[in-house]
Design a binder for these strands. Sequence first.
DNA 1: AATTGATACAACCATTTGGTTGTAGGTTAT
DNA 2: ATAACCTACAACCAAATGGTTGTATCAATT
Lengths: 111, 111
Amino acid sequence: MVVSIELSDAEVDRLFHALADATRRDILRRSVAGDLSVSRLAADYPMSFAAVQKHVAVLEQVGLVTKIRNGRELLVRSDPDTLRRARLALDQLEEAWRGRVERMAAVLDDE
Amino acid sequence: MVVSIELSDAEVDRLFHALADATRRDILRRSVAGDLSVSRLAADYPMSFAAVQKHVAVLEQVGLVTKIRNGRELLVRSDPDTLRRARLALDQLEEAWRGRVERMAAVLDDE
DNA sequence: AATTGATACAACCATTTGGTTGTAGGTTAT
DNA sequence: ATAACCTACAACCAAATGGTTGTATCAATT
């Protein structure tokens, strides 16, 4: 059974904003492929460690990622459920479109 | 046949950014339901006409919307293709996840 | 215990964003 | 022609964003 999830405007705002940055999307992709520490991630971007840390924090605040302690490092782990919620928001927008197309088709059928 | 579309990082940045605002998403939904003039749209938001105009401009710049002259007003029309491109970007992120799940399942099968 | 490595966090800065008001340019209606 | 309406655009402002450096904390290694 699929539970219909209610997404608040504010949450969708933050979700899309988190996804609207190439570095953050790249961090997401890489942490999906396998858990990586923040410093390991940071090594591959042309910016300071602190900057990458901030990007991870943005992803973490919207739940796209969680951090797991492993010795003295923190592994960044992506959360597929949150990504699904982002998709749901897009789906709802697209659904409005499908509805319109159907209504137009119905009008045409009436003639 | 579905053509695999290449989305540049910059384009996805702008796409998600355009969607990361509740007012803009609402304008999208309303213009999907039926073409509306900018002033008609603006009348229903608690902000100035110029502010709404800017939101429409953001949607227009990323191609989520186009404007069509109708007498002295400009109708805002949504473009479903661009919305689909946004979804494609999300799908590609999700696909990375599916790939991981499959690899993990394969590892488990090997044991 | 001292050092090193990984992270957190504050302070700061430039740029962008989202809002405002005001002015100007077309289009329709009277 | 004039008035009324719709849109465009510039100038301005406060707040948020994305980056920096510096300092502090905490865990592991030696």
